[in-house]
Design a protein around this nucleic acid. Structure first.
Lengths: 245, 245
DNA sequence: GACGAACTGTGTCCGGTGGATACTGTGTAC
DNA sequence: GTACACAGTATCCACCGGACACAGTTCGTC
């Protein structure tokens, strides 16, 4: 949750950095660093030590300079975030060769997106809210839109479908980025909660009557939700086609 | 994204605070505050000034004490978060009187949940990750499970459906808590991004060819996604019933 | 009734965060 | 050769969550 809507000036600067290149300076000492190198170091830290461990100081230490040196390359923390996101999302996949029409294409898209987010677990967390996206990130959106080609959706529906799809993947990406599920396994808070629930079974009859999960649900319901969503889209389009006839 | 899995001790303390009551002290000066009063002040601040504006100091100022005085009532920021969430989610609704079976019940549930989250826009943001939930929050989960009564889902499917449903509501709650959508209206980053996209239309043919949104999509695709999800569930159950026959 | 234990709230300190500003040194264009 | 533009540093700020020692208040127990 971002504190305040950033001033448009900062956003313009970030967009300039992400989309056009900032012209390199002509005079002065040679820069010892580069924006990509800094972003790569930042991404490495976030990958290995977690997103909350990421700070200007930590990144500066990683690349071997003082914290303030980074501000020669990036306007601030927000801009560093934007750059490291753009660097980490990787090139969007080419789904034009996937056979079988829109549905396998969408399923493939979900797998690819989930794979990138799995490699950078902080990514689904960081890509929330109103932001300036970089070209690669927009490429993923373009890719998602293209995946729905031939599904028979209107433009507005397609937008909504893409949006819902991204949200679904985010929600089923990892317990850390999803809503709390009181039945999740493992240790930690969920274990404490489960014990509490046992003690108050009378207050939650439906929850208590539910048999425990058959196995670990490492999928978090992604396949189930995706199937329902796509089935629902098919139903929608089929119903419209039937009405038109 | 929480930094580290909190020590189980802290979680136990939080669970004790949320579920059992902590026994009031017998001796000593009368407490000038109470946990609910503090949590209410915190929720008020988050509502009015945004979640990032919430700090121990700010809450302390709101209730008229020093920052450190709050630590007599809650163990830390995390516990304050937990209490203010539990206080703000409100009592779960009673959906037993909703006619028409599981589907209207689920739709009603989504409306109610969205309404609470709309009153406290920081709530969908704060209720992410592995946490200890309070009784009211669990009541909402119980309510969601009960809503699916009669839909014909297995226990595992029901769990996944509830989970996906919560995620869908969160994703379509507000632009601030949803994934970035490059076509969202208004000023700010999205406006900057839209202008950039116009300039690079050739790189994103599908996106560029899409007609602009018919109107402001203040629904963020919630209705669309919900319809697809529930249609998909119906398809799933109907298919299984047909196979069994 | 006195006293000590338990408790509330305060003041001070710590390491951390993002960021502003003034500075030194370095390199290139004129 | 000199002036300017730039890189990186050092120092400072306000703020964050939190630890700790302390003063003042109230009750249970002798």
């Amino acid at each position: 949750m971002r504190a305040t809507p950033e001033t448009s000036e900062a956003e313009l600067g970030t967009a300039e950095l992400l989309w056009g290149r900032r012209e390199p300076p002509a005079r002065g000492p040679r820069p010892g660093l580069s924006v990509p190198a800094i972003a790569e170091a930042a991404a490495r830290i976030a990958d290995q030590e977690g997103y909350p461990a990421l700070s200007m100081q930590r990144v500066a230490a990683e690349v071997g300079v003082t914290k303030m040196a980074l501000y020669r390359y990036v306007a601030g923390k927000g801009e560093l975030d934007a750059v490291m996101i753009e660097l980490s999302v990787d090139e969007p996949p080419d789904l034009s060769g996937v056979p079988g029409g829109w549905r396998p294409r969408v399923e493939r898209f979900v797998r690819e997106l989930g794979e990138v987010w799995r490699r950078h677990p902080w990514l689904p967390w960081a890509t929330v809210g109103d932001r300036v996206m970089g070209p690669r990130e927009v490429g993923w959106v373009e890719c998602a839109f293209a995946a729905f080609d031939g599904a028979g959706l209107t433009a507005d529906e397609r937008r909504q479908a893409v949006f819902v799809l991204f949200g679904h993947v985010r929600n089923t990406q990892s317990p850390a980025t999803a809503g709390t599920q009181p039945w999740s396994g493992g240790a930690g808070p969920s274990a404490v909660l489960r014990e509490v629930l046992d003690r108050h079974a009378d207050r939650f009859p439906v929850l208590a009557a539910l048999p425990p999960p058959a196995g670990p649900d490492d999928d978090l319901g992604r396949a189930f939700g995706l199937r329902c969503l796509l089935d629902g889209i098919e139903t929608l389009v089929a119903g419209r086609a039937a009405a038109a006839r």
